[in-house]
Write a protein that binds this DNA or RNA. Sequence first.
DNA 1: AATAACAAGATTGTCGACAATTTGTCTATT
DNA 2: AATAGACAAATTGTCGACAATCTTGTTATT
Lengths: 221, 221
Amino acid sequence: MNFFQEKAVTSSDKTFFQLREEIVEGHISAGSKLSEVELSTKYEVSRAVVREAINRLEACNIVERKANVGARVVTLTSEGLLELYQIREALEGMAARLAAQHMPDAEINQLSSLLEGQQDEVKQRNVYYQEAGDLDFHYRIIVGSQNQQLITMLSNGIYHLARMYRVQLGMTGPRVTTAYDEHIHIVRAIANRDGELAEILMRRHIQYSKNNIAVKLSNMK
Amino acid sequence: MNFFQEKAVTSSDKTFFQLREEIVEGHISAGSKLSEVELSTKYEVSRAVVREAINRLEACNIVERKANVGARVVTLTSEGLLELYQIREALEGMAARLAAQHMPDAEINQLSSLLEGQQDEVKQRNVYYQEAGDLDFHYRIIVGSQNQQLITMLSNGIYHLARMYRVQLGMTGPRVTTAYDEHIHIVRAIANRDGELAEILMRRHIQYSKNNIAVKLSNMK
DNA sequence: AATAACAAGATTGTCGACAATTTGTCTATT
DNA sequence: AATAGACAAATTGTCGACAATCTTGTTATT
């Protein structure tokens, strides 16, 4: 589940993780107000640690804060989704390019065998895009870029917001085997050390995902 | 100077801005430790506001913090510079593409005339890449993308770190008229609503900048 | 009736003090 | 002499209280 292992050393960390999960999973609804005192009693910590947690969520673009007024969970809009996926396209495209340049052969082989292992499930039971598998794939490529700032940006910030959209729009939908094939092609480009192609394919792949979600979103209105 | 007008409403804001400026401009040296008590006496505020300011700086990748140990200003390395410019290339390239799609004609015209106004200085006195002009150019395109998350990311986070590198490596160097010509071509692509080309040109432009700085950096060692 | 000024309540911002953790030094043991 | 352990100093983490600001509802004035 937690690919990028985050260990909560301080109390603020724990509160931050809990709060983030509740928001992303939809237990705290989008657009709702975050009262510092309310949360501090709920989690049994002081207001100071709640404030710090909220500040960190703000840095992730998961909550918005106004001075002297308070913090609200962001609202999910089709514009926001579009914006987010434009950023993902740019950054993960670059990650794929860099992975083609820097990813060690060993890691590429692991990634290949990971996909091969998924092949059976996909072809027989049509259960790809099972969050976990998709996530694992993307995360390994991001790490493969060996760009620490890029890794941090994507895993700390963008990833959770993207998941929030998927979870709250009920993305268990179709997009089954096609995504799998796209993954295959991307890995092949990386294995061939073709950064140019890897970037192009990754960007296409993310565009398709976006379109898939955007359809769902427009259906809900 | 401040394109994206940031007004400090709260005391934390002010401390954050001051601290960020001192770090970026090199008055607080890279790699140095940030003591909360020391800073709180220096700026005459409580530790709480200093903590909040430091947290924000951490979100900008300008300081690094370890739990129960403290915060340090990041150290400037050639790897860090490389990573930063890879990110800029991806994000600003996307910004240029989006600007070609969404930027209003009026803004494009303003941008064109801005460059025309700079032409004299450039051709006659060789003083382009005068920080301000370059900055204004990039910022207008970022805003032209009309992607709010992208705008926030670049202006709040990445921009200041990039400036920190430039300032502390003494980037007043050459790269005079070439950058100007690159700007011209990018605007032309945007005016033609050619997002594909605008992105390519912007990415090249940023690659050149990176190379220019990387040379300086390797000379200093 | 509409608007403006005001007051009460609630929420966020700031502060100083205490608790927990780390770091460095000194001592004791092998 | 080197290592381990314990102690002391300093720094960060957490807390509750107070101050400043915003919001809401009421009253007064036109």
